[in-house]
Design a protein around this nucleic acid. Structure first.
Lengths: 248, 248
DNA sequence: TGTCCGGGTTGATTTAGGTCAAGGCCAGCG
DNA sequence: CGCTGGCCTTGACCTAAATCAACCCGGACA
């Protein structure tokens, strides 16, 4: 099932995004009514923690609006972000009782939650739900592996350029696909969160953002709003094979 | 389904590991015969490439014996390993025509392959195959995220200690669970491959291995055989929360 | 039996990014 | 208003790991 199909589904049916965007491929009436009975919404304010690593987590969920992060922390406080959840992304692992990561709302956040036990039952009786979830998990795994290349081998500058490209891309795919050329978006992360994403310190992030600005690859309006005059030029500084980036 | 169940299955039925270890939860006769018709074995010599990133890949497979790696390479030659495949691990993505990574045999390797198209059909008709695959993919995702913490935030010494612990653990779980205490295994990777795993240079790997040896945390017999006199002591140098490590 | 070659070690030096420290900017609030 | 506290920037300095280079070791092979 393609992304376009999902978009269509969510348009045709409206309502809960997990049902249409994240999990349900075919709008089966019986299944929908079953989903309905186990679902509920939860809201969090920017900065609030959804669950701490190790806490009991008796639901799975999809992000409706806002942004959440998954982070791992070492005893001495070193932190690494390991997941960035945008609207329509899925959190939670069927078959695991405890959260493996800290889940934090970095902006105001609304999630559509499903009680875990019944969700697992639904999964085992409706094959395409498991299949859709598999597909999403494989996508996440690919993203994680891309991220590993970034963490292990890219320079600070390449890391920043890559992050900006990733955000620009995801942002653009949420809006209408904008006319090629100038591209603008708000950074959903603080410098410190960017650092945790990239395996850098916040000072290095700040310096490299300034450097990209000095070199004309980006413009800043305030500290958060970024304008990318030439997306391809930015991509050339990510270290990635250039495939235009909007494909795939 | 637990790992123990899988071990039992593979013992009860013998034969193809994907059928018993990797995918099949219940030994359904019909399903087995269907699997039989689409499966074949392939062998590779140490150093051979199984597929190049971007190549057409019309099968999925599980490792029967030997070790394979997934790596990503940048145009200028920087390399990052993003997957390490030991016996019973699964390769290949249902629903993707091209390989996303280079797959390389680092030792002599035997894989049990399934033609992709019929495998996908099997998946869509037998729900527990998709479910088992989902479970495996989620495990891989967890491993990838652990790996991200390592790449982004650990020191060279912690990286080496972590890698040794990972290999020791996986090695021990393949053999009988050895009596606690001294633990010994062969490194399946060259220094360079270790470097690609850890996001370091091979010189740094060599130096840190020497340092761990100097500090008595490991002993070396030749360049490849490692003896760990006190596993817990090693774990304390990984930077990870200590939970003994054999749990989970 | 020499020599070649791939893997591994170790040393000297350089450098990218971390650390520490001082300020700047601005929104919220007494 | 002026103060406070987050967030961000910039500078000076330091250090972990990269780079460059020499060499070692053991197995294959002529």
């Amino acid at each position: 099932m393609s992304h376009q199909d999902l978009q269509l589904m969510s348009h045709d049916c409206g309502g809960c995004p997990i049902r249409h965007r994240a999990v349900c491929a075919r709008c089966d009436a019986d299944e929908l009514s079953r989903l309905e009975t186990i679902k509920y919404y939860r809201s969090y304010q920017a900065g609030q923690t959804v669950v701490w690593s190790g806490d009991r987590m008796d639901f799975v969920a999809s992000v409706v609006s806002g942004i959440a992060t998954l982070t791992q922390t070492m005893e001495d406080g070193r932190r690494q972000m390991v997941g960035l959840l945008l609207p329509s992304d899925f959190v939670g692992r069927p078959g695991r009782a405890q959260a493996a990561y800290d889940v934090t709302a970095t902006t105001d956040l609304v999630m559509c939650c499903f009680r875990k036990r019944p969700f697992e039952e639904l999964m085992s009786t409706t094959p395409h739900v498991a299949q859709r979830l598999l597909e999403m998990t494989l996508d996440e795994l690919d993203a994680a592996r891309e991220w590993m290349l970034l963490l292990g081998r890219k320079t600070a500058r390449e890391k920043i350029a890559s992050l900006l490209a990733i955000i620009a891309r995801r942002d653009a795919s949420l809006k209408l696909r904008s006319a090629k050329g100038a591209l603008a978006f708000d950074l959903p992360l603080t410098r410190e969160e960017m650092a945790d994403y990239l395996g850098l310190t916040l000072e290095t992030v700040s310096r490299q953002v300034s450097a990209l600005k000095r070199d004309g690859l980006i413009q800043l309006e305030g500290k958060r709003h970024v304008v990318v005059p030439d997306f391809d030029a930015l991509l050339e500084h990510t270290g990635d094979d250039s495939d235009g980036g909007f494909l795939n």
